[in-house]
Amino acid sequence: MTINSIHDEVEATRLAFRDGMSRLAAAVNIVTTDGPGGLAGFTASAVCSVTDRPPTLLVCLNRSSSVAGMFERNRVLCVNTLASGHEAMSKLFGGSTPQEDRFAVGDWIMSTTGSPRLTDAIVSFDCEVESAIESGTHHVLFCRVVGIAHGADEEEALIYFRRRYHHIK
C-alpha cells in the first residue's frame, strides 16, 4: 500500500463523497404526499428499485426537511419521475417555496393513496410506506407500490448529473 492510496482512503470525507455522488447520474423525481399530515412534495434523486416481489421502492428523505413530519404522518407517497420539460418544477419543489404554491404549477390528480400524481410525468409510482429507518441525516423509506401510471413514451427524461440537468431518451 502506498502513501497515496492511504491518503485517498482517509479523504473519503463528506465533501469528497458529495463530489463523487455528483458523478452518479440519477432520474429527477417529485415525491408527493397528502393526508392527515398535510399536502407536501419535494424533489428527489435518491429513489431506486428494491424488489419486484412485492414491487417496492426506496426513497431517501432528509429528516431535517420541512416536509419530513408530513410524510411520516401520512405514510403514503407518489414518486413522479420528471420529463425534460419539468426542470423549473424540479427547482420549485427543491427550494423553499411554500407547499401550496408548489402544487399551483403542473396538472395534478389524486392517486389511489391520496397522494398527488403529476399527469405528465414519465412514470408515477403510488406507494404506501411500509417501513423507515434512520441513516445519518436521512430517513430511508421502503415503499410498497400499489399503482403505476405510465406517461408518454416519446418524452425525454430529466436527469441530474455533475450538478446540472440533462435530458435523455
Rank of each mutant, 00 (worst) to 15 (best):
I6W: 10
A104Q: 07
G35V: 06
M21S: 03
D19I: 00
M1T: 09
S84H: 14
V145M: 12
A44S: 09
C127H: 12
E100M: 03
V28I: 08
H86N: 14
A132P: 04
L92P: 01
G114R: 06
E130R: 15
L24H: 12
L82I: 11
N4F: 05
V79I: 14
R102Q: 06
T43Y: 03
Q99V: 09
H86I: 15
I159P: 01
S64I: 03
A157R: 07
E155W: 13
G69S: 04
R144A: 13
T2M: 01
N80T: 08
A83I: 09
C78W: 04
F142Y: 13
G94W: 13
I148L: 07
F42N: 01
K169C: 13
I122Q: 05
D153Q: 14
T113A: 10
A26I: 09
S124H: 04
C60T: 14
C127I: 13
P54L: 06
L82M: 12
C48G: 01
E9F: 14
E156I: 10
R75L: 12
S135E: 05
I133L: 10
G38K: 08
V28A: 02
L118K: 05
G136I: 13
G114W: 02
D107K: 06
L77Q: 11
A157F: 03
V31K: 03
N74M: 02
L77T: 11
I133E: 10
F161D: 04
P54N: 08
I3C: 02
N29E: 02
R23S: 09
P55E: 09
D52N: 11
R164S: 14
I168P: 08
P98K: 05
R102M: 06
C78G: 06
C78D: 07
S135A: 05
F161L: 15
F42I: 04
R14V: 08
A83E: 08
A104N: 04
G41L: 05
A16I: 05
S45I: 13
I3N: 04
W108R: 06
G35N: 02
E155T: 15
N4T: 10
R163F: 14
D153H: 13
L58S: 13
S90V: 02
A68H: 10
P36M: 08
I148W: 06
G95T: 07
F93W: 01
S66G: 10
